[in-house]
Computed example of a mutant assay.
Amino acid sequence: MNDNDHADETPQERIAKVALYLESVKARMPAEEFETLRQAVHEMVHLIADGREGFLETGDRENFTDTIQKEFLTVMAIVMTGRMDHQVVDIPGPDGSPGYAVVTPELANDPDELAKLRETFHDWATERETIDTELDGITRASGIDTDH
């Protein structure tokens, strides 16, 4: 099955896949973690359905554990692509902070391609950090109050 095989799926078919996946997660995840995941998925699906950009309000970030983050990414991959075979791989930041990427099984099983993906991410993150630092300096030098 190729990526285009899911292009003609109805939203109802994708919702059914998400519901099936969430049932499997519910069976293996502690109830309080599952509730955090369920709320995050609910909020993000509504943002997508409304065609809005926004930030996911996960409440207490300490409760949005690595496990919940990985499951959330998996669910969002199903919502967006209709595919249920994605894998979440670790892509730590340049500073070693945790990070993840959702990839196809083919990419997940190709160490050379994963290494390229990690390198590309590190390059992007390093460039982004440099730009943010420069913008912060400009903001401070201009006297712009960013607390508002």
Rank of each mutant, 00 (worst) to 15 (best):
T126K: 11
L47P: 00
Q12I: 07
G54T: 04
R140Y: 02
Q69K: 14
V25P: 02
R52D: 12
M76N: 04
D8S: 13
A16W: 03
E71F: 00
F64A: 04
M1I: 02
T139G: 04
G99A: 04
A108Q: 04
D90E: 12
F72V: 05
V89M: 05
E43P: 02
Y21D: 01
D90N: 14
Y21E: 06
D147Y: 07
P105N: 06
T36P: 01
V79L: 05
D123E: 14
F34C: 07
T58A: 14
W124L: 14
R38K: 15
S97K: 11
D136A: 15
M44E: 13
L56F: 10
D5P: 02
A27D: 07
R28Q: 12
D85L: 02
T36F: 01
A125S: 15
I91G: 05
R140G: 00
V88G: 01
A108D: 02
P98V: 05
F72E: 00
H42L: 11
E32H: 13
R83F: 02
V89I: 13
V102K: 07
G96H: 07
D95W: 01
T133I: 07
A101M: 11
A27W: 00
L22N: 08
E134P: 10
V103H: 05
Q12E: 13
E134K: 15
Q87F: 00
M29G: 03
T146I: 08
A19D: 10
R14P: 01
E33T: 08
E57M: 10
W124D: 11
V25L: 09
D145H: 02
V79I: 11
K17H: 00
I15H: 07
D85G: 08
D90H: 12
P11F: 04
G82S: 06
K26A: 10
W124G: 12
F34M: 09
M76G: 04
R140S: 06
Q87A: 04
Y100L: 07
D123G: 13
H42V: 06
M29C: 08
T126W: 04
A19R: 13
F64T: 03
P94I: 05
R118I: 11
F121I: 09
A16F: 05
P98R: 08
D95H: 10
N109G: 15
L22F: 10
F121H: 14
H42G: 12
G96I: 02
I138D: 03
S142I: 05
P111Y: 02
L107H: 01
V41Q: 00
H148K: 13
D8F: 09
T36Q: 07
R83I: 03
R52L: 11
R52Q: 14
A77Q: 03
L37H: 00
H42S: 15
I131A: 15
